[in-house]
Design a protein around this nucleic acid. Structure first.
Lengths: 210, 210
DNA sequence: CTACATTTGTGACACTTTTCACAAACGTCA
DNA sequence: TGACGTTTGTGAAAAGTGTCACAAATGTAG
């Protein structure tokens, strides 16, 4: 179980779990074939993905839905609540803050930071916006392990470093730069411009090829 | 040039372009080594990525920044303006709508659709919110080629199909489902819960391994 | 109990992506 | 001009991912 799991496998696991949620027969089973049909993948891929974490299917039957679901949750580390801080109370940050899916999956936003003096001290969604210099104190106090970083590119590195100093272990980064953090820190980048550019590339490519 | 370009290559191209923007010596050059240092990659990777589109470096010197920049823009298809419609005027949709980086890169939001009767007819950011049934007419009229789909999972498939019928060629999908669309349509998924789960997985993995 | 229809788990294979290594090209300087 | 240091472009090797095919389990039905 100490083998390296690829990013694509993790994404698929997350997707399998999502698929299982529309599945409400108690005690039912699901085959790798069915699971594959709901995702955009193959039965063999499903089985290989799951096999990295032990063998919890029954041959001839498939996987027990309830068990698979809880196993996936355990594997993904969402069989608990993660305490998250929002850094950057701009439009995107606030939209995420109120995104119901986050809370529903156990990601609980417990603090908001923003360096805009006009915002500091005001209340947003039941939390008082704090100065980012308070991050270090607050992180310990509130048990913050994850940060959603939604600040302009110019400020991102500084805020990331501050979060790292505060003891945060993971960063969901919306700024379009590669953060420079110690290797023990996990960073996931969400680069919206990049996504649009990928679309633009695909569309232009089609045209070039006729 | 008709070879298949991998998604990771496209993402890196986008990133190279972003890196070059902080580069304001007119007529300067940049080596694959420097470009690699700014990204999270290697010099060989940079050269191979670029070589798929012709050889526009000078041996012994590197790449001319101005030229590389405009070549990358051409390659990515952002040497023009893309007309985009926002479908779903919820929090995330509106945040994206006003995201300055989009417009700055040539993605121009020219229409907003939402099926909420309370929103239809109201003005948001200078545009009147329309009923999604108008998509087909509006798409032709306004030259919409891309759609940002930011609606709840339940509505996503229907809206996607409508957009496809309207002649849209690309969809940036924020709903956590795999859209079922004809193969000629490009879809990029942005799944925020999945990203958080990937972080959660990485953090839990560390703990398991001690 | 045996034959049978399923479906998993997994080694072997195929394909993709990255890394390596080096010849070829370029500018410079004497 | 010619030797030199640099950096590209690219085949070939290595590493990583996905697919296939099939033996081993499992439940069912007779």
């Amino acid at each position: 179980m100490t083998k390296k799991i690829s990013a694509s496998t993790v994404r698929r696991l997350s997707h399998y779990l999502r698929s299982l949620e529309g599945f409400e027969e108690p005690g039912g089973t699901v085959s790798s074939e069915e699971l594959a049909a709901r995702g955009q993948t193959t039965a063999a891929q499903v089985r290989k993905d799951l096999s990295h974490f032990g063998s919890f299917g029954k041959r001839g039957l498939g996987y027990q839905v309830d068990e698979l679901r809880s196993r996936l949750r355990r594997i993904l580390g969402i069989d608990r609540t993660w305490r998250v801080a929002l850094v950057g109370a701009g439009r995107i940050g606030l939209a995420l803050f109120e995104y119901p899916a986050f809370r529903a999956r156990g990601f609980e936003c417990v603090a908001i930071f923003d360096s805009d003096p006009d915002k500091i001290g005001t209340e947003l969604g039941g939390l008082v916006v704090r100065d980012p210099t308070e991050l270090e104190d607050a992180a310990g106090e509130l048990g913050i392990e994850l940060v959603i970083l939604a600040v302009p590119a110019e400020a991102a590195q500084e805020m990331a470093s501050r979060a790292v100093d505060a003891g945060v272990r993971g960063i969901l980064n919306f700024a379009p730069i590669r953060l420079n953090v110690p290797p023990r820190i996990s960073v996931e980048d969400v680069n919206l411009v990049m996504e649009l550019e990928a679309l633009s590339f695909a569309l232009s490519q089609e045209q070039r090829e006729g």
